[in-house]
Nucleic acid binder design. Sequence first.
DNA 1: TATAACTGCTTACC
DNA 2: ACTGGTAAGCAGTTATG
Length: 649
Amino acid sequence: MKLPKVCQILGEYVAFDFEWDNTTHIMLAASFVNNLGSKKVYLNSHSEIALLENIKAELLEYSWSIGWNSNTSFENNNNGGTSNGGNLNDIANDNFIADDVQCDLGVLYERCETNGIDNIIFKSQKGSRAYYSIPGLYHIDLYQVYNKQMVQNTIYNRAYRTHKLDDVSKALLRHGKFKGLGGKDFLKLSIKDRKKYSLRDSELVMELSKHSNFEVLDAMLAISEITGLDFERVCRTNLTTWWGVLFDQMIQNGECPEPFNTFDRESVKYKGALVLDPKQGLYHNTVVVDAASLYPTVSIHSNLSFDTVNCKCCKNNSRAKVKLNDTFFKGCKFISKNKCWICQKREGAFPKKLKIFRHERLQQKKLGNGAKQLALKILINGGYGVFGHTKFSYYNPMVAELVTTYGRYTLTKMQDIAKKLGFHIIYGDTDSLFLNNPPSKITLSKFQKLCKEKLDIENEEKNTYNTLILSAGKKHYIGYENGLVAIVGYEGKKNDRCEFVKETFNGLINSIIKNNTNPIPALEKAMYTLESGKVDPKLLKKSIRLGQNPKDYKSQTCQAAKIGRAVGAKKGELVEYFDSNIKKTGRSWSKNYRHIDISKYKQSLWNSVSEVLEITKYPVNELAEKFDVRTIKRKNNNDGHVMQNLPAV
DNA sequence: TATAACTGCTTACC
DNA sequence: ACTGGTAAGCAGTTATG
């Protein structure tokens, strides 16, 4: 096996985890696992100082260490664990700890100071955040790496829902923390189990660092090579920083001018992608075509960049004007037909880099360099978005809006081409078209050829669905291809629904689309089981992930704020609850399974399955009456389109 | 008192 | 320190007949 590149940099390195008392911060335990397999645990059995000395000695053994949530204290929001407050007056609350330290290195720093012993940790403060480092040594907070949006989306395809070690480990390693326990339970454990608990955390961090043959860290290292930023910095920064230094370098090298347009940084939304109205129905033989990397492509074709849009030199050049029909500017916030132009004299910094990255990515793919390939993919795909980010030093919403506008133009032209060839377009989203009953394989390749000729766009045949259930609502469909069912967007699949609804929904879909069996008996059984109260409450548990700390919600009355406040949860945490009846219990939610409001669950189940039943011609009104649930009104985009019921091919 | 319209939020798609 | 917009459904509030 080829040694991962990251190992050549890190050499022998250690993952660590500390346990401390939540209120006093007294250090209770620490564990260390190195990449060669050596494992150590220290407990605070007689003296905290002895433990602290052991920790320091271990850390100094290695030039590189890795932790989880280890070097940054993010939010100073601890309300002392009391749940009486949690409101906007918390600042004045005596229980509020202004400088609560919430990371491993921070607690180590604090405990060394408190005990009056030598410190190996350095503290720096930036705004409301404190950063801790070990001078002379390198440290990576793996939490910050797995917290990156592009790692979650591009690499792991949203496999984990929260960024807690337990959640990420369960999703990627298939096992989590010791007996699923949390830090609060630590002191309740026996000495033996305390050791196991602490050690497990370090083991998980080490395993995550190595996951998929160092996939993530190798990609970060590749980004470090591409951008010239050091590895540690790449691990704690994101796309705006990376693209920022790339452009900085180009300016320094004289490859492009400094940005000349300035914008208010008020974060006004700009117009985005085109999503076609789906023609609701059941289809057989549908091809989905997809324009390959649409946004980078249009950025290159139209030379869109911070240094080309509304340049100094081409204002009066008629060739520089954006030659798009008026309709494409409708609803735009930053561009209009007569107020923007694109430089004709110089290639923009952004397309220039994109071209290089694209070419390089192909080369690296051929060479089998997965990490470099992935790093380039991350940079290429994330390049357009940073122009719409107000904190990006090259923020330029005109560039972002031109990219999406050319994207809308391209999808519209693709539709024209498809229509002329006799295709029936039933849906499309941003860069894709759903073509029903393509006349033939030959017309399909004709479509691809014309898109290439007229638009210089490569179209890939992404899916060929034998059966397709297309919802009237956008971003919702179910496709069946080669024995595989793809459920896209449906509420019955979303993570804030309970397991019971998700399972029943899944069963129903499989029964209809895959097994060709009558789904109604199973649905009746599910409804009956719900009514009889025999469903395991575990399966009825709902959950929401807090986007804010409860006190920070703009709407203090929204469900997330209310539940979060009541249970003392923090930003990023998952809160579990049951739906209950507000008239009976005073709340629409409850932690107590005895308060479960079955009618809400029946309605939720019905809402997620009813449209599919309607499309597949089951008697929905009759069933709704039978189950005692409300039917829901849905818009219909059919435009007189006749639903098809052709046999599957 | 009932319902529609609206806002805020989470989750998903691209 | 932080890539983007589009869109669905739900809880909860406010306007309206």
